[in-house]
Design a protein around this nucleic acid. Structure first.
Length: 863
RNA sequence: GGGCGCUUGGCUCAGCGGUAGAGCAUCGCCUUCACACGGCGGGGGUCAGUGGUUCGAAUCCACUAGCGCCCACCA
């Protein structure tokens, strides 16, 4: 390697080097010179492919993004310097609900799919109080418009932070390529029977009016209340149940108790009458019923919670659904099939007071009715209990029967667990989260959503001559037609005029869950089925970086899709980053109002300073937001400028590294290189930085001071040549070791004396150093350490005596073990110069230093 | 209820079987010719608790407590 100590052009060091402006200067240069462009001509074995997380484009990036994206960039830069062609695209997740919501608020509009497209539509200057209804195509235009603006702002921040992304290789989860991949992958699953549709109870958000998946649930503690309600037994007796959802009483289809519960065993197989509605419902036995809860017997409604669904399915009960998609109780005609009652007129009268009410209002109403009927026993007892919410929703989820699309997961659980074991996790223990999730899967993955801004299902259904839509016979387009929107395009063999007419066709009205697209990021970024040559150079990818809370969604879903489509893992390694915590140890998030604007941070501490802080947060470790660490990083970058300026201030004479001290320093550095390389290979970037930094400060505080006088020629030509050779070699190495962490300052210093970018320089190897110093020098290592120790003790003496460091030491006596005394003689000149030692004596013994300082001169100043 | 992780000086963390470490903060000294956006040096911890394994434990094992996260069928 010619660049170990070679100078590639006349050295140009600024008079007073500063960090200010380096971000602007170098990001422009990197863009102009396409420094980080992906070389797609390289074979798979030379490629390092990263499945970058596409950030959600629904507002602004926060410091947590800066944190975790820096981690990925460290790895990308390391791999690039190791000679890999690094595939590092940036996607944007602009598909889905967050964007819809943001567009609604930003422009003050609401999507009304029944309206026709208005090509002349212009959004209001300021959002109106009443949302303006717009057509679906107009709404989608606004989504695209707003996300484009956000994406520009995001790219600006990433460039300023110094992410070495392949700009131009990106994608957006709503763009044509993502739509095609989503639809293509779905159609293939459908043809293989791995996707299916089903009319079934589904978790439903009544505000968003859409189905949601198990992975999008979260529990929240809410106030609720137990209501003790009396059912009548045919023999005239009563039976009391407790419920938190009395409004679902009309939807009650059975009571259930534990099979071993002696209290209720005699009732199994009999039936009882619901209060108010006088419906006859059976009493059933099921092991999930908990004798300890409430009265030990529960009512089963269709559907109050997921346990109801289990009971309904396993006990083969009928459906008596009362909730409609908007969260109100629907009109019901009592006496019809499925709605039998002993007294239909009374049931109807009771129910009519509930129909049309929201769940919460219906609850208040029915409690009143139960009281009047004498069926409510005792007082209502308030409790706190956890309730399932859609993670983005504000009202509890309901369970509503509807037709939805699913991808099979349950019957592939074992294979998916095996995939999880095949994957290399960083840190290793994150694998457990995946295993917990896969083992706990409760149902297949519901991928359909009743929303607007997303990837449509590319399907139509024939309409019978009777006008009934035949959902069981989907019309699947040829793959060559994808992507398509079935609401505007027409299935083969039909005319546009036949849309929504008997004998014609109907489009599938739904869009896909956003994860149904995000789970294909390797395929989308890698241009699967579009650019076969590229895809084969990338897939399976090397790295999926992501945070731990979306292991159950993004990571799992991606593994699933790849397992089905490619019978492979999507990547070999997953690096899981932690969260950024505020000083109260809470996750930083917008809703808590504790988010720091990332751009202001970068401007205040410098991108290198912020990256340093991020790099100190190890893989998977939640890390406190700490401006102090950013200042430390900034100080390190400044030190690098100044130490480099010093080293480059004199480059001649320059020659073979022969001096013990220099050989010792290079040997230490060679050992550091081996360590740091191994650490980075195993994604332990934090340790690599820590060790590099520790070496660098030792190097500045001790080696530079020890070598200073000799490199100026005070001890002859040969010694100076050795010093300068070693200094330049060390600088080259250190710049390259720091380059992934501090890309701006290292590039700046590199440019003072080297050609090309440090980010394409080869990653340092111990071998190139040892070639220069003619092999390892263990003696030199010890000599350097001893010299540093003695120098430290001399300084300590001066400090203790409150004397300036420039105070001379008349006499220094070093006691040291006999075999080390010879080493001291090897570095005697350097040590005496650095410590301003006038007479250096040695004596055998346990290590110890005696220092005799010069007198304080006249007037108190030291001489 | 199950699982995972964490608990080390005032703060943020490293160490993970061999006599307690770093940075920040603090205190003292020094305007030293690369660096005052600085340098040098000092003080400060019975490594959450209890028990065990070991010649030896912050480091391994068990239990306990606190914090965080994930999961769970939450009448």
């Amino acid at each position: 390697m010619s660049d170990v100590s070679g100078i590639q052009h006349p050295v140009q060091v600024p008079e007073k080097p500063v960090l200010e402006g380096l971000e602007i200067k170098w990001q422009a240069r990197w863009e102009a010179e396409r420094t980080y462009q992906f070389d797609r001509s390289r074979p798979r074995s030379d490629v390092y492919a990263i499945d970058t997380p596409p950030p959600t484009v629904s507002g602004s990036l926060h410091v947590g993004h800066v944190f975790s994206y820096t981690h990925t960039d460290l790895i990308a830069r390391f791999q690039r310097m190791r000679g890999k062609a690094v595939f590092y695209p940036m996607g944007w997740d602009d598909n889905g609900l967050p964007t819809e919501r943001r567009v609604q608020n930003y422009y003050g509009v609401r999507c009304d799919p029944s309206l026709p497209y208005d090509p002349a539509f212009v959004p209001p200057e300021k959002p109106a109080k009443q949302p303006l209804p717009v057509s679906r195509p107009n709404f989608i235009e606004l989504c695209n418009r707003l996300t484009a603006e956000d994406e520009k702002a995001f790219e600006h921040l990433w460039r300023y932070l110094g992410l070495s992304v392949n700009w131009g290789m990106g994608y957006a989860t709503i763009d044509r390529r993502a739509q095609r991949a989503s639809q293509l992958a779905f159609v293939r699953l459908l043809k293989r029977g791995l996707a299916y549709q089903l009319e079934a109870p589904t978790l439903w958000d009544v505000d968003f009016r859409t189905a949601v998946a198990q992975a999008e649930l979260e529990d929240r503690e809410r106030e609720g209340a137990y209501h003790r309600v009396r059912f009548d037994r045919p023999d005239g007796g009563g039976i009391e149940i407790e419920t938190t959802r009395p409004e679902l009483l009309p939807a009650c289809v059975a009571l259930v108790a534990h099979p071993d519960d002696e209290r209720y065993r005699p009732l199994f197989g009999q039936s009882v009458l619901t209060p108010l509605f006088r419906s006859r419902v059976p009493v059933k036995a099921h092991p999930l019923a908990d004798p300890e809860k409430g009265s030990g017997i529960a009512m089963i409604c269709t559907f109050g919670d997921v346990t109801d669904v289990v009971w309904w399915r396993e006990l083969a009960l009928p459906v008596r659904g009362v909730l409609q998609p908007n969260g109100t109780l629907r009109p019901v005609r009592w006496g019809e099939t499925g709605w039998e009652s002993e007294d239909s007129a009374a049931a109807q009268a009771h129910y009519d007071q509930l129909a049309g009410l929201s769940v919460s209002k219906a609850r208040v109403q029915i409690v009143e009715q139960l009281k009047q009927a004498g069926a409510l026993i005792g007082d209502v007892r308030p409790i706190m209990h956890s309730v399932k919410f859609y993670e983005k929703g504000d009202r509890p989820l309901e369970i509503i029967t509807s037709r939805q699309w699913f991808i099979r997961t349950m019957e592939h659980r074992d294979a998916l667990l095996a995939r999880g074991r095949q994957l290399r996790w960083h840190p290793e223990y994150m694998r457990t989260r995946y295993e917990n999730w896969v083992s706990g899967l409760a149902g297949d993955w519901c991928i359909s959503r009743q929303r607007f801004f997303g990837v449509p299902f590319p399907l139509w259904y024939p309409i019978g001559t009777d006008g009934v839509v035949q959902f069981g016979k989907p019309l699947i387009p040829d793959e060559s037609r994808l992507p398509l929107d079935p609401s505007t395009e027409v299935p083969d063999g039909y005319e546009a005029a036949q849309r929504d007419h008997p004998g014609g066709f109907a489009a599938d009205p739904d869009i896909m869950d956003t994860w149904a697209t995000s789970s294909l990021t390797p395929q989308i970024a890698g241009r699967w089925e579009e650019d076969r040559d590229l895809f084969e150079r990338l897939f399976p990818f090397d790295l999926r970086p992501q945070s731990h809370e979306i292991i159950r969604t993004w990571l799992f879903d991606t593994v699933l899709r790849s397992h089905f489509e490619h019978d492979s893992l999507p990547w070999t390694d997953a690096a899981i980053s932690g969260w950024v915590l505020d000083p109260d140890r809470k996750k930083m998030s917008k809703s808590k109002g504790n988010v720091v604007t990332p751009f202001a941070l970068l401007e205040e501490h410098g991108s290198d300073g912020v990256r340093y802080w991020a790099a100190r947060g190890g893989p998977g470790v939640d890390t406190a937001f700490d401006a102090g660490q950013m200042r430390v990083g900034r100080r390190l970058a400044i030190k690098l400028l100044n130490a480099s300026k010093f080293i480059l201030s004199r480059t001649e004479p320059r020659g073979a590294v022969t001096h013990t001290l220099d050989r010792g320093m290079l040997t230490k550095l060679a050992r550091l290189v081996d360590e740091a390389t191994a650490d980075l290979e195993s994604y332990n970037y934090t340790r690599a930085l820590e060790h590099t930094e520790a070496f660098f400060w030792f190097f500045c505080d001790n080696y530079l001071e020890l070598v200073k006088s000799r490199r100026y020629g005070d001890h002859g030509e040969v010694g100076a040549a050795s010093a300068n050779g070693a200094l330049l070699a060390a600088l080259s190495m250190l710049l390259r070791l720091f380059a992934p962490f501090l890309p701006f300052v290292t590039e700046e210093v590199w440019s003072w004396w080297q050609s090309g970018s440090v980010h394409h320089a080869s990653w340092p190897s111990a071998r190139e150093l040892l070639a220069l110093s003619n092999g390892e020098d263990d003696r030199g290592v010890v000599a350097l350490d001893v010299a540093a120790m003695v120098l430290g003790d001399v300084r300590k003496k001066k400090s203790e005596q409150q004397r300036p460091m420039k105070t001379a030491a008349r006499r220094v006596l070093v006691r040291e073990r006999a075999e080390r005394i010879a080493l001291i003689d090897d570095v005697r000149g350097d040590l005496m110069a650095a410590g301003l030692i006038e007479r250096l004596e040695t004596a055998p013994g346990e290590y110890g230093v005696e220092v005799e300082l010069a007198e304080v001169g006249p007037g108190g100043s030291a001489t």
